[in-house]
């Protein structure tokens, strides 16, 4: 796993420098608009893009084939992308928290940063099975759909509870979102492992 993470980071770090520059730009825009969430959202998108880019680089160079030939198991190959995403998202969340804590209340900053992290991980989880199955080129459609699914489900839940006459308070909504995200993440991991195990490289 360490080798896979090292590989993903080494491959992606060139792009990370470019993202840092864009991040600085977003920080300025967010500062002048007095909207820290805009910056938080962008910070979460960077790990997502880096994970997908690392998969694209692997695919282009046929690195998965070499990794399997070098003793990496297919399970490790699939799960390493989730771990890579988690590590990057944790770093982004930490940054988000520090920035948000300057502007808003610490508890709120913590909750917002955690939620952004969860959304990012869910988005990665929605996209990765398609990346493993179709390849990054074809999986771009799923990336677009991936944006819509969490939004659609959020609207759906609100509508469903509204029609049932159940009052959604913030805590209940938070619990529901966390449960939904965890289910998506675990299901996605299981699907990805299955896809990679059956795949011929």
């Amino acid at each position: 796993m360490k080798a896979l993470l090292s590989k993903d980071w080494t491959v992606s770090k060139g792009l990370f420098k470019n993202y840092l520059m864009v991040m600085a730009l977003y920080a300025l825009i967010a500062y002048f608009n007095d909207n820290v969430f805009m910056f938080n959202g962008f910070c979460i998108m960077i790990p997502v893009m880096m994970v997908i880019n690392s998969a694209a680089y692997d695919e282009k160079a046929h690195m998965e084939k070499w990794m399997i030939a070098s003793g990496i198991t297919r399970i490790q190959l699939a799960l390493s992308k989730y771990l890579f995403a988690l590590v990057l998202l944790c770093a982004a969340t930490l940054l988000n928290f520090y920035i948000a804590a300057i502007v808003i209340d610490i508890v709120e900053a913590l909750a917002v940063s955690f939620l952004f992290c969860l959304v990012g991980m869910t988005y990665v989880s929605l996209v990765l099975p398609a990346v493993f199955y179709f390849g990054t080129e074809k999986a771009r459609i799923s990336m677009m759909v991936g944006f819509l699914i969490p939004f659609g489900i959020g609207v759906g839940i609100t509508y469903l509870f509204g029609s049932l006459g159940i009052q959604l308070n913030e805590l209940l909504l938070l619990v529901l979102v966390i449960c939904f995200c965890l289910i998506v993440i675990v299901a996605s991991m299981m699907i990805s492992v299955r896809i990679v195990e059956k795949k011929d490289y």
């Binding site: 080494t10 491959v11 060139g14 160079a61 046929h62 690195m63 084939k65 070499w66 070098s70």
Partner: peptide, 13 residues
């Protein structure tokens, strides 16, 4: 030790 018929390392490395 394996060597494939194509380069297995990303061009950016």
């Amino acid at each position: 030790g394996s060597v494939m018929d194509e380069n297995c390392f990303s061009d950016h490395l």
